[in-house]
Structures are given as structure tokens and as C-alpha cells.
Simulated scan of single mutants.
Amino acid sequence: MIARREFLKKSTLACAAIWGQRFVPQEEDFNIIDIHQHTNYAGRSHEELLTHQRAMGVKHTILLPAGTPSFGASTHFGKSNGLQVNSTGNDVCMEIAGRYPGEFYFGANEVPDLQGADKEIEKYLKKGAKAIGELKFGVKADGKPMERIYRLAEAYNVPVLLHWQFGMYTYGYEDFHKILQKFPKVNFIGHAQSWWANIDKNHNDQSVLYPRGKVTPGGITDRLLADYPNMFADMSAGSGLSALTRDEEHARGFLVRHQDKLLYGSDCDDRTGTGNGCTGIQAIQKIKELSPDLAVVRKILHGNAAKLFRI
């Protein structure tokens, strides 16, 4: 409680400096929902995860599991097991969520082209999983294994979180609008390097995963968010932070334009939740700094996620 009060005090002062005296943040404004975290992330312990989340002021966290370790092409013959960060699976995420009810929630995941993948995912959806993902596998976004997963998401009314990384994970980004049209009742969440690189209309070299410099609105990502009510954005990791910092003038407009579609996530393996080594806290600070008012901040840090995940 002492740490939480100190966090709220510092955050209130920071917000006052940014917004002036027009806004007086209340405690509920710091009930952050983090939609993207992992257990055992790069060897981080459960206790360190708890410390990290609480230090950032996160009230609710969704733990995204890895699939079953396998050695086919979809996991790059084992390289992508554990979501390539040593993340643990469905059972561990559910166990942690059970240990901290109301503070942690869990998703459901499996390697899409494994036999029985849909049954494994459904098993955890029946137990209360809040999402499917993070789907981070070397498969086609419009392939039959993935479409089976989308149908599960529709049946259980949970969002699907996709990791887009050119040449590595979730192939076929340029045609993803067809999936959004085919599954209008499924809410999709875009994440990772290729998702955020494509906010720029002039992003032509897809092999560049962390582009720098000015952004021209109208990229694939910008259009998907604008044109499809079932498309949302996960602002986590270095890729999401880079999208905010590479062109802050563009970012201000982007936050306003898509304020009802943006979801805060950390996807950070930091242990403390403070300082320059933590992309999670840096993203929170940037969202507060670049948003025009407290209403937009509230939507991005908790309001949108509360509706989408029914928290």
C-alpha cells in the first residue's frame, strides 16, 4: 500500500506537470490494464513479475502463454518454442491467475498446426481464458489452422492477439483485411514489429522491422484500425514504444485518431518496472505525455481493454 500511494503521488504530480491544473487524476486513473505479459519471460521469476507489474501501477494483467514445445516449421524447428523468450504455457498462466484472482488473468494458446490445437485452446477457454494468443508462429494468417482458431474466438467471444513479424511470424499481413472481412464478429489485436512499422504509408521495405524517422499517415496498420471495427492495437514492446517516439507529432494524431482501438501492453522482461530499462513504464509515460487529455489516457490504459476483455 505504501508503494502504491507513493506511485500515485508521483504519477499525479507528473500528470499535473503535463496537463496543468485542469485535470486532477483520481486513483482509478492508474488502474492500468496490461494486456500482454508472460510468465518466466527470459527467466524472470513469478515474484519478479509481480514486483514489475505492481511497480508500474498495473491493476490487471493478462498472461499470454506459449504453445506446446514442438519442432516443426511453424516453430522454426524449435527456435520459437516458448514464444522465443522461454515463456511458459497454459497451465502455468492459469495457475498464477488462480493465485492472484482479479489481478492476473490468463489467455489460451497452442501451436496452430499441431493435431488437436483447437481442442487444447478450447480446454482453457472453458476454464475462463480471456484471449487467444499470443499467436507467434510461422504460419499463414489465412491458413486453415488459424481459421479454426478464429472460429473458436468467435464461439467464445474472446479476442485474438497476433504477432506480426515479416518473414518470421504470421505470414500475409498485406492481405489480412480479408480475414477481418471474413470474421467480422472476431476482435483481432495487432502486435509487434511489422504491425507497428506499417503505420507509415511509405514503409516499403518489409525487412526493416524498426524503421526510424518521420511517419506519413495511411499505412496498412493505420487503415486497418480506421476501416475495421474488429481491429485493435497492442502498444507493447519496443516496437510499440518506437511507434510513439520515432515521430511524436504523428504519434499525437495517431493516439487521437485511434483512441478507441488502442490497448496498453508491456511485453517487457524487466524485473523492476522502473527506469530506462523498462519499456513498459516508458510506454505508460509516453502515452500520458502525448495524449491530448485525460479522457484519451483513460481509454488507452484501461477503458478499452476493460470493454474488450470484459474485466
Rank of each mutant, 00 (worst) to 15 (best):
L241S: 09
R252N: 11
F254T: 06
Y228H: 06
F254N: 04
L255N: 09
F254Q: 05
L225R: 05
R257N: 09
H250P: 15
Y228V: 04
D247T: 13
A233T: 13
L255I: 12
G238R: 03
D234E: 12
M235K: 06
D247K: 08
S239T: 06
S236V: 03
G253W: 00
R223D: 10
F232G: 15
E249G: 01
L244I: 13
L225H: 04
E249L: 01
L241Q: 09
Q259F: 06
T245E: 07
L241I: 12
L224C: 10
A243R: 01
E249D: 11
R246P: 08
M235F: 00
E248A: 06
R257H: 11
M231S: 04
L244H: 08
V256Q: 09
D222Q: 06
L244F: 13
E248P: 12
M235R: 03
S239W: 00
D227C: 03
D234S: 08
D222S: 03
E248S: 09
N230Y: 02
D247Q: 09
H258T: 14
Y228I: 06
D227G: 11
A233E: 13
L244Q: 07
R252Q: 14
A237W: 13
Q259K: 02
D227I: 06
R252M: 10
L225D: 12
Q259V: 04
P229W: 00
E249S: 02
Y228D: 08
L225A: 05
N230W: 13
A251Y: 09
R257A: 11
R252E: 09
G238A: 01
H258G: 14
S236Q: 12
V256N: 06
D260K: 14
D260H: 03
